[in-house]
Design a protein around this nucleic acid. Structure first.
Length: 258
DNA sequence: AATTTTTACAACCGCATCCAA
DNA sequence: ATTGGATGCGGTTGTAAAAAT
């Protein structure tokens, strides 16, 4: 029994892609667009598995990829997003225009982990490695999504509020408020919204009364300007992370269905 | 200069999820 | 409601390049 293989492995190439293979793949997608990866290799004249083609396109050949070194700003954003989302690389990548989940995952494992360790921070929990010393200082850092239990604040005014009791395991449920270090003279009202991580990995967002309409909250404000996750066309100015004020929760919709 | 070790990252693999039949 | 194919995701591996010995 078992599943049938995704492709005829005996007749597919593996390993590094050649220039010619790249050109074939690019030409085919330019002519026909993305989609139907299973049939693409045959149509494009490639002796590759469809999954391999998809990966090559998404991680390396896509024209909108940024490539090059990560900036300090991207570094910090990755750390913050990882703190909130854990190893949800595709979601993190969605906040970083031109970066892929694979690239961020690799970067995390080779650079960011080390950077956090050097700061004395556990890259898994984002807590100080020496918890005892933190307790002595009467301070704490935000916990991982699975262990969040206390309100805490990190720089940039990002605050994690405690999740409702019982939100553990696969449920990502963060009451996250982002506020400026100093409130403006007439502070805007606190907005509350819900962001659902749905099957396709996109956020479905909306104010409490408008959830089904999927009102865009321009969540890319948690990412960099011009993020692909922004569906509002970027019409509104996208000020820095620290100037936004709203609450939202991440709810894994799949876990709410049952 | 040769060899070994480390680093960086592209690519693979297996499982999860979605969705149409 | 069930099933199976297609796709997406995250963990892991393989390997070329760089650094160290």
């Amino acid at each position: 029994m078992g599943r049938s293989p995704c492709c005829e492995k005996a007749h597919t190439n593996k390993g590094a892609w050649t220039k010619e293979e790249d050109q074939r793949l690019i030409a085919h997608i330019k002519a026909n667009g993305e989609g139907c990866w299973r049939s693409l290799p045959k149509a494009a004249g490639l002796l590759r598995c469809g999954k391999s083609c998809r990966l090559r396109w998404i991680n390396y050949l896509r024209p909108d990829l940024k490539r090059g070194n990560f900036t300090e700003e991207e570094d910090e954003l990755i750390i913050k997003l990882h703190e909130f989302l854990g190893n949800k690389w595709s979601l993190i990548a969605g906040r970083l225009p031109g970066r892929t989940d694979n690239e961020i995952k690799n970067y995390w494992n080779t650079h960011v982990k080390r950077k956090l360790l050097a700061r004395g921070v556990d890259p898994h929990t984002h807590r100080p490695l020496n918890a005892a010393s933190a307790a002595l200082q009467g301070m704490d850092t935000p916990s991982s999504p699975a262990t969040a239990s206390q309100s805490s604040e990190v720089d940039d005014g990002v605050t994690l509020l405690p999740p409702p009791a019982g939100h553990l395991g696969g449920m990502i449920d963060l009451n996250l408020s982002i506020s400026p270090p100093c409130q403006p003279s007439s502070p805007p009202p606190m907005r509350e919204a819900e962001a659902r991580i749905v099957g396709d990995g996109a956020f479905r967002t909306g104010y409490a009364s408008e959830r089904e309409e999927g009102i865009c909250l321009c969540l890319n404000r948690l990412g960099l300007q011009g993020g692909v996750g922004c569906s509002c066309g970027g019409a509104s100015p996208s000020p820095s992370l620290s100037s936004q004020v709203f609450n939202f929760r991440f709810v894994d919709a799949s876990l709410q269905r049952s």
